[in-house]
Design a protein around this nucleic acid. Structure first.
Lengths: 281, 281
DNA sequence: CGATGTATTGACCAGCTTCAAGTAACGTGG
DNA sequence: CCACGTTACTTGAAGCTGGTCAATACATCG
């Protein structure tokens, strides 16, 4: 299986991502907004009890204290460059993003897809050796933390330090699962597994449209880079999933899974798979 | 369809790994040794200043306090099963091990190779959803920690809590790099990259033999499972690396890299790549 | 000395990439 | 309003990477 032929993402695509930066019109008007619009104790994310663990008042207070500002990025913007050694620390508040790494010749691997609540930049702060890039898939709003946040969270409230360890360890688990896919699942299984996971996670944050579909702001090119496949082959396998009645795309950017159990079977995944609530910092 | 795409590790192999458990003759006589043979403040691992960060006396004291015992496993033993929800916490003291995940039908992906100093079990303690298995490649000695170690390290010494976060985040970085390989490197590049990484890391812990070779207790079958390739194809690419004069195996289980720069070039990797010292807990 | 595990090699073929071409949707500027 | 450029999605044909099957060699071991 020539996954090793390893498709090289056309330079065109990478340029496109960069060019998106130049676009105008975003959900937020000021990229450099300095004041926090939303007080942490009213953070709408925390109301999603099924996603996030409850928090104690003193924890919330410390987090609010470490919050520096909110920032907005537009779809395609690079939040963190791959080799930045002084990356900021964010929590994703709204929108989609992804983490990726690249080979010198431009081949790109998407490591993980980020949804609200994701804690961004932990690795860059810690590991010296080349980290990963983080890029926005949609317009995005993040909460930026002050310098020294990691240390202070650990020192002042060990329970939050524990949460940081939790987030880091959980992140590794997510990549582990993805590596199993890319290494040992067929193209068909791989795509099924990824779409099922995205469908499950997206359901936690966005309400379905009237037709039951959820947003999926990944292009097939993104899916290809996430799965280690070529764009063309992702398309073929996607068509097959549709043909078999497991899912369909009512509109570009919208996905509807019609047979979750069937998709899970195609993906060789256990189902259902209730994810426990996670810490939100 | 063919699950054929992805090579399925023969059941034979997995059985073999299990059977190894039954073998006799190991470096340690008693698998259930309860007392710690080595006081933490004399831990020989800590003398490797180029690998591990220095530690303060109060940190060392707490760690020693949390140490429960040392245990030995034989090559092939399963230290942690893939779906155990109550896994212990270890630090690898001697020997080699690996982390892996499996699909229901037996296809196996090796996620990471573990060498001395590796902190084992963090993910299982944290993530509920199916974790990974940990298995010994050679006879192995580990330091087992008491229950509640994670919490106490965080609560009593935030600097150690920070180290835990460091280890977890770094672990994710390692898997990220591996995922880039499996997803986007050709078979040849992939094998070169893995061997180069193992060569580099092994050099930190084991002295070269007279012929300059280092131990490499992975069979080609292990390499295949780590790289998402078939055993046969790993062999072909390995022969090619030898043919091109980049490395060779003077004896089974021993590797000698003859041209590090050339291997790095074949692997599409930056070189040299000096790894910073890491925390040792 | 057969049994087992590991490395090696050849022959064949299939999964996936590449190349190429074509459709559709959208925004732009004339 | 309509050409025109851009991006995303589709589909077909050809060929390469890497999988499968099979057989050999070689070591270690009870």
């Amino acid at each position: 299986m020539p996954r090793s032929i390893t498709p090289r993402t056309p330079a065109r695509q990478l340029e496109r991502d960069a060019k998106a930066k130049a676009r105008v019109g975003s959900a937020c008007d000021d990229e450099f907004e300095v004041h926090s619009e939303t007080p942490c104790d009213e953070c709408p994310l925390r109301r999603r009890r099924e996603c996030f663990q409850p928090i104690r008042p003193e924890e919330l207070e410390l987090i609010a204290d470490m919050k520096q500002s909110e920032r907005c990025f537009e779809a395609g913007d690079v939040l963190i460059a791959e080799n930045s050694d002084d990356a900021p620390l964010y929590t994703l508040l709204e929108g989609w993003a992804f983490r990726s790494k690249q080979l010198p010749d431009g081949r790109r691997q998407i490591l993980d897809v980020l949804m609200p609540g994701a804690f961004i930049g932990l690795q860059q702060r810690i590991t010296v050796r080349g980290g990963h890039a983080v890029q926005a898939l949609t317009d995005v709003r993040v909460c930026e933390f002050k310098r020294g946040t990691l240390l202070r969270l650990h020192e002042q409230l060990p329970s939050l330090g524990m949460d940081l360890t939790w987030l880091a360890a959980n992140g590794e688990g997510v990549v582990d699962a993805h590596l199993l896919s890319v290494g040992r699942r067929s193209a068909f299984e791989r795509l099924a597994a990824l779409l099922l996971m995205l469908w499950e996670r997206a359901g936690h944050f966005w309400p379905p449209r009237d037709d039951g579909s959820l947003p999926l702001p990944l292009t097939q090119s993104h899916l290809a880079d996430a799965l280690g496949l070529s764009l063309v082959h992702v398309n073929r396998q996607f068509r097959r999933l549709v043909r078999e009645g497991l899912l369909h795309m009512p509109a570009e950017g919208w996905l509807r899974v019609d047979d979750e159990a069937g998709l899970a079977k195609a993906a060789q995944m256990p189902w259902p798979r209730n994810l426990p609530p996670r810490p939100l910092i």
